[in-house]
Amino acid sequence: MVMENQASNEGSALRILDATKSFPAPDNVARNVALNATTLSVAAGEFISIIGPSGCGKSTLLRLIAGLDVPDSGELWVGNDRITGPSAERGLVFQDPNLFPWLTVSRNIQSGLVARGLLQRKRPEVDEFIRLVGLEKFAHAYPHHLSGGMAQRTALARALINHPRVLLLDEPLGALDAFTRMRMQDEVLRLWQARRTTMLLVTHDIDEAIYMADRIVVMTPHPGRVERTITVSLDRPRQRNSPEFLRLRGEILDLLHLTGNAGESANGKSGKNGLLEPEPAAQSL
């Protein structure tokens, strides 16, 4: 059966088959279903945006792909390998850059190589990646000296130096101001086009989702599931005010409004300005 699945999905970089994940509810008796029977197939080199209101399971989906959580049922595959745990071939960048504060920028970027014992062999790549994200002048600075954008660029370089097959981006630009954010969107696209890494971007920003992605996965909560997948066929670089862009924006807003009336109306309403209610930076202990 497994072989059949592989055969029928030739060319997919990532496949999620019927994945379900639940967490204990606060009363510790019931369980909240964070992600319900989700199936998704991502082509190699594709850029996917995942959008939806809080609690729709998009971060849970990313953690399952990263291997940091194990699904209750269902399977996740990268190429021909089943995901059983975290691996360097699936990089993850959070909203909080989570740089190791005790390491300089350059040492943060090389930490993936150190962890895998490849530093000796691949040391020249460290400088290459520092250049790639334009942080030559800050190579020996500690993270607390960096601006939000620089810190996030460091986090991107740290994830990319492992040459992951899939890069998972969990609202990486969510904490940045509007201008830095737009510049960083182009930066991420540049990295994606240069390296052709498969990327999955979770975001609250509808414009960001349309601007970046080949396909947008719209998710809805209670329980978290994929509402619809929308293909974006606009040419790059995209114009944020082109008629097709605005039409897509309207379509996604409509999708989320419908669910907003049924479930959390607050999320649907705040979606009018193209931004969903932002989640606070994850700082769990």
Partner: peptide, 24 residues
């Protein structure tokens, strides 16, 4: 009390248990 997200990041960078303890 090591921040769980540091450990998560290190795991997705390919860290072994040794790395998680001594380097994180």
């Amino acid at each position: 009390n090591t921040r769980a997200s540091y450990l998560d990041v290190a795991r997705t960078l390919g860290a072994s248990r040794w790395y998680l303890i001594f380097r994180v």
